[in-house]
Structure formats: C-alpha cells, structure tokens
Deep mutational scan, measured.
Amino acid sequence: EALLLQRRRVTVRKADAGGLGISIKGGRENKMPILISKIFKGLAADQTEALFVGDAILSVNGEDLSSATHDEAVQVLKKTGKEVVLEVKYMKD
C-alpha cells in the first residue's frame, strides 16, 4: 500500500489507432486533481498494467497538470505523440 502512495512514472506507447485509452475527471474548477476515471480494456494505458482508476495524473511528458482545468488536461493529453510519460500518484478517496 505504501508503494501506491508514491509518485510513479509510467511510459505509455500508443498504438497507431486509438489514443491512451483513458477517461479523466477532476481539474482545478472541481478543486480536484486530474484523475483517471476509466481505463479501456486492451488499449495503451491498460497494456502498461501500471495505471489504475483513481490515479492522479501529475504531469504529462514533463508538463505539470497540478493546477490544470479539465479542458487543459484533455488538450495536453490529446497533443501527445506516440510515447507518453505520465507521472501519477494514487489518490485515496
């Protein structure tokens, strides 16, 4: 459990079709971090076996998301290339 509370760096390699394969919720306007709300089976994020629903995305390719709005986070995630480095931390409810 202590492991979950540490920052983790996960590299996601996207397939030619399909994006990261995650849905996010939260954002500055909700006074919440950007959280992974869904991981789609078989897509890139799922294949890492290292990302979990409830993980907060702290940064994407080094771009800090700690004070991002939901829309800003969506845009940052959309413009990523084939390889995406996510810094995440599991957030307890």
Rank of each mutant, 00 (worst) to 15 (best):
E1G: 10
E1A: 07
E1K: 15
A2Y: 15
A2F: 15
A2Q: 09
L3A: 08
L3I: 11
L4S: 09
R7G: 09
R7C: 04
R7E: 09
R7N: 10
R7T: 14
R7M: 13
R7H: 09
R8F: 00
R8S: 02
R8H: 01
R8V: 02
R9G: 04
R9S: 13
V10D: 05
V10S: 04
V10P: 03
T11I: 14
T11P: 05
T11F: 07
T11C: 15
T11S: 09
T11N: 08
T11M: 12
T11A: 10
T11Y: 07
T11H: 08
V12F: 05
V12M: 08
V12E: 00
V12H: 00
V12D: 03
V12P: 01
R13Y: 11
R13C: 10
R13S: 12
K14S: 09
K14G: 13
K14W: 08
K14L: 11
A15C: 06
A15S: 15
A15L: 14
A15N: 11
A15F: 13
A15R: 11
D16S: 13
D16H: 13
D16M: 10
D16Q: 14
D16C: 11
D16V: 12
A17M: 14
A17L: 14
A17Q: 13
A17N: 14
G18A: 12
G18T: 13
G18Q: 15
G18W: 08
L20R: 00
L20T: 03
L20I: 13
L20A: 00
G21E: 04
G21S: 03
I22V: 08
I22E: 02
I22C: 02
I22H: 01
I22M: 09
I22D: 03
S23F: 10
S23P: 02
S23M: 15
S23T: 14
I24L: 10
I24D: 04
I24W: 03
K25R: 10
K25M: 12
K25Y: 13
K25P: 03
K25S: 15
G26V: 00
G27P: 02
N30D: 15
M32T: 14
L35M: 11
L35I: 11
L35F: 10
L35V: 13
L35G: 00
I36L: 02
I36F: 03
I36K: 03
S37L: 04
S37I: 06
S37A: 13
K38D: 14
K38G: 10
K38F: 07
K38V: 06
K38L: 03
I39E: 04
I39A: 02
I39T: 04
F40I: 12
F40V: 12
F40W: 10
F40Y: 15
A45H: 05
A45F: 05
A45R: 04
A45D: 07
D46Q: 07
D46R: 04
D46F: 07
D46C: 08
D46A: 14
D46N: 06
D46W: 13
D46G: 07
Q47W: 06
Q47K: 14
Q47R: 14
Q47G: 08
Q47A: 11
Q47P: 06
Q47S: 11
T48Q: 06
T48M: 05
T48A: 13
T48N: 07
E49L: 08
E49K: 12
A50L: 12
A50N: 14
A50C: 11
L51R: 02
L51G: 03
L51I: 08
F52M: 08
F52W: 07
F52N: 11
V53I: 09
V53A: 07
V53N: 02
V53W: 00
V53C: 07
G54V: 01
G54H: 06
G54Q: 03
G54C: 03
G54T: 01
G54W: 04
D55S: 00
D55H: 01
A56R: 07
A56H: 06
A56K: 05
A56D: 02
A56P: 00
A56W: 06
A56Y: 04
I57D: 01
I57F: 01
I57A: 01
L58S: 04
L58D: 04
L58R: 01
L58F: 12
L58H: 04
S59C: 12
S59T: 09
V60S: 03
N61M: 04
N61C: 05
N61P: 00
N61T: 01
N61Q: 04
G62Y: 04
G62Q: 06
E63A: 11
E63Y: 11
E63K: 14
E63G: 06
D64N: 09
D64E: 07
D64L: 05
D64T: 07
L65N: 01
L65R: 01
S66V: 09
S66P: 00
S66D: 07
S67K: 13
S67L: 12
S67D: 12
S67F: 12
S67M: 15
A68T: 07
A68K: 09
T69R: 07
T69K: 06
T69H: 04
H70A: 10
H70Q: 13
H70S: 11
D71C: 08
D71S: 14
D71V: 07
D71N: 13
E72R: 08
E72F: 07
E72Y: 12
E72L: 06
V74I: 14
V76G: 08
V76D: 07
L77S: 06
L77W: 06
T80N: 10
T80P: 10
G81S: 11
V84I: 14
L86M: 15
L86F: 08
E87W: 06
E87I: 10
E87A: 04
V88A: 02
V88K: 02
K89Y: 10
K89C: 11
K89I: 11
K89R: 10
K89A: 13
K89M: 14
Y90P: 06
Y90R: 10
Y90S: 13
Y90T: 11
M91T: 09
M91V: 08
M91N: 09
M91C: 12
M91A: 10
K92G: 15
K92R: 12
K92S: 14
K92M: 15
D93K: 05
D93Q: 12
D93S: 10
